[in-house]
Design a protein around this nucleic acid. Sequence first.
DNA 1: TTGCATTGATTGCACATGCATGTAGTGTCA
DNA 2: TGACACTACATGCATGTGCAATCAATGCAA
Lengths: 138, 138
Amino acid sequence: MSEIDAAESADLVAAWRELLARHAATACALDRELGERFGLGMSEFEVLERLAESRDEWAGKLRVQELGEKVHLSQSALSRLIGRLEKDGLVERHMCTEDRRGVFVLLSEVGWQRYQEARPLHRAVLRRSLMGRQPSCG
Amino acid sequence: MSEIDAAESADLVAAWRELLARHAATACALDRELGERFGLGMSEFEVLERLAESRDEWAGKLRVQELGEKVHLSQSALSRLIGRLEKDGLVERHMCTEDRRGVFVLLSEVGWQRYQEARPLHRAVLRRSLMGRQPSCG
DNA sequence: TTGCATTGATTGCACATGCATGTAGTGTCA
DNA sequence: TGACACTACATGCATGTGCAATCAATGCAA
């Protein structure tokens, strides 16, 4: 391994550790704070947000598959996450009549309100955690 | 919410999604590839690497607490991870005689070799995943 | 010395995740 | 029409995780 490769490796590792630290700190803070105050995990919020963003164009309705492309979860994890949101009344599942294998996930009114309540905290955590130097967690 | 705040929020969210995507892609690739070829998860490798880095100064021996400061895992997760590494013969646990609450984790010869074997793949994954645009995963 | 708060690490438990599989629906080709 | 490959989503299962409780050791103060 040449010195140049070694230096490049060291840079890569440093960048990766930086990314890991920011991710851990932010994800942990989001999970804790959104969980405490709104009963939402980081990924639950993410799904609500994607649905909320589709509100104008698609009436807050997305197929599970479309959500899967946006959120970094396995298909099974996403399915169960939607189940939890559904149980809490934040979203509804609807059959997709064009393709009856598909399932629409629809943001409920309660879900929309919960999202709007939680959003300022979410942004505050991002601001605090992504801008400043990382606090530790977990 | 003023327009400036809205723009700042949008930037934050964009940065956070970018970070999430890079993290997911890289972590997933590391887990899969290190797992397939060396039976190591991402965090297992990280712990081996921290121990390996302490080899010159501390003979590859760190206290659990010191590891905990470097790796983004809860105390319990780290304890069990060390348990797995120990079961596989990659590290050894030793009582810390100065403070008998503490535990030293010592990189074994097998662990050192495994680390050296796995490192090139680890670096290759980082290079591929951190430099290029993110592939999707999970 | 005794008593008590604190620290370091492990363990019980609940839960979220991913992989593999199952099930139902779609599309294609003969 | 029937067989077959493929897609969308859900579920069984094993595993890794964090929180809270636990246990042992330390340090400090009375």
